[in-house]
Computed example of a mutant assay.
Amino acid sequence: SPEVAAHNPLGKIPALVLEDGTVLYDSRVICEYLDGLSAGPRLFPEGPARWDALTRQALADGLLDAALLTRYERVLRPEAQRWAAWEAGQVAKITAALDRFETLVADMPALDIGTVALACAVGYLDLRFPDLAWRDGRPATAAWYAVFEGRPSMVATVPQG
């Protein structure tokens, strides 16, 4: 939209306009900024835990990228121009990322940028891809998300439509 493009030349959300007019865009940048304002526990830990959190964040972001591309393919591209093999490749990325999280979730901390990114990604799958049934065969991730999605911050930000 023109309103978003006025703040972010890429025309993408999110974009955060600060009081001084500075604009931050991309979830990663905004999360780092907000984390820097916090006096409490950090989403971006220090030391080796940082690289673990950032790696899980990158995996969740890649899952979400593949889901968004699949959504665009299904909703915006005319049916005659859709490429089934390409879409299958994106769904395979989603599946592979979810399978990796199933091996990681037991050792994840309660809250860091990696857990937030994963929760946002699977929440998006719930919203736009219920047909993927991402919980099937992933009991540990499903159980983790059942707890995480009850956090007040998650409840307050459930997307509609």
Rank of each mutant, 00 (worst) to 15 (best):
E3K: 12
H7G: 05
K12I: 14
K12Q: 14
L16C: 04
V17L: 05
L18F: 13
G21K: 04
D26F: 09
Y33D: 06
Y33C: 03
G36W: 13
S38Q: 08
P41R: 12
P41C: 07
R42P: 10
P45L: 03
P48A: 04
W51D: 11
D52S: 15
A53S: 02
T55Y: 09
G62V: 11
A66P: 07
L68W: 14
T70V: 08
R71M: 08
R71L: 12
Y72G: 07
R74S: 06
R74F: 10
V75E: 12
L76M: 14
Q81K: 14
W83N: 09
A84L: 14
A85L: 13
G89A: 02
G89H: 08
G89Q: 07
V91D: 00
A92I: 11
A92M: 04
K93A: 11
I94R: 00
A97N: 04
A97L: 04
R100G: 08
V105R: 00
V105M: 01
M108E: 07
P109W: 09
L111P: 00
L118N: 02
C120H: 11
F129W: 11
L132S: 02
W134Q: 04
R138A: 01
P139Y: 13
A140F: 09
V147I: 10
G150L: 12
P152T: 03
A156E: 10
P159T: 10
P159Q: 05
